[in-house]
Design a protein around this nucleic acid. Structure first.
Lengths: 122, 122
DNA sequence: CTTGGATATATCAGAACTCGATATATACTT
DNA sequence: AAGTATATATCGAGTTCTGATATATCCAAG
């Protein structure tokens, strides 16, 4: 169970939101589920990150009341803060994925034995 | 020019030391060269990291005087602190590489379209 | 011989980040 | 009534990041 750091958290959260709007608690569960239990992003990592993404304009937000089944229509129930990926967030996700891929590529090259082979494959 | 964070720094520094003993300044230059100028690990990141690796027993150290060409044999010249990868450091490097590869694999799966295909490959 | 750039190690300090613990409140189940 | 799940959020001690600073030697150009 890997606790995600900011860079990976951002990538993963934006990726979840690319599938459609969601909210903190659900995103956290989605990350655990989608990663088959390997990734973990807890509340203390999630909410500051979401606030940051909001400030950066990568997501837009709205509050919505959670209606209970047989609830009194006048009762004020639990609230959810929904996050929606903005066009800017969309572009940022693409950038993050690209940056991630480049990092992989550079690290692979770095770690590869110093063959200097410049193999014609790829 | 990417400034390396601790995880990647550790991986990259141990990797450089796997090619043979070296010292801070040279490691920094080697990282820039070996990454074709893409990775940067500056003094303020390098020395605390090397100290940490030493404390963890991943590297062993020794001081050596840099002899100048026509220098007075009695003159005390510049000093270098050499770092040598320990057997434990060797094993740790392998672990880091494995962890890195697993992270790639997990992130790729996460970012892949939600096909739910459960393809029999791999 | 003096100025500056390269070599070489190292710390400082403000900022940012990490992460378990805590706080608050509603909803559902037993 | 108690316990678990849902839901958002902050606190704070510890760690990490990074440009700036400090110190000192070596070498080449002016």
């Amino acid at each position: 169970m890997l606790n995600l750091k900011q860079d990976h958290s951002t990538l993963v959260v934006l990726s979840v939101l690319a599938d459609g709007p969601s909210y903190g608690y659900a995103i956290s569960k989605a990350i655990a589920a989608k990663s088959d239990g390997h990734f973990k992003l807890t509340a203390s990592g999630m909410y500051p990150l979401l606030t940051k993404l909001e400030k950066q304009g990568l997501v837009s937000t709205s509050w919505e009341e959670v209606k209970a089944e047989g609830a009194d229509p006048d009762a004020s129930g639990r609230k959810r803060k929904w996050y929606t990926l903005s066009p800017k967030g969309r572009r940022q996700l693409d950038k993050h994925i690209e940056a991630h891929k480049q990092m992989l590529h550079l690290l692979d090259n770095f770690l590869a034995p110093a063959h200097t082979s410049t193999s014609p494959s790829t």
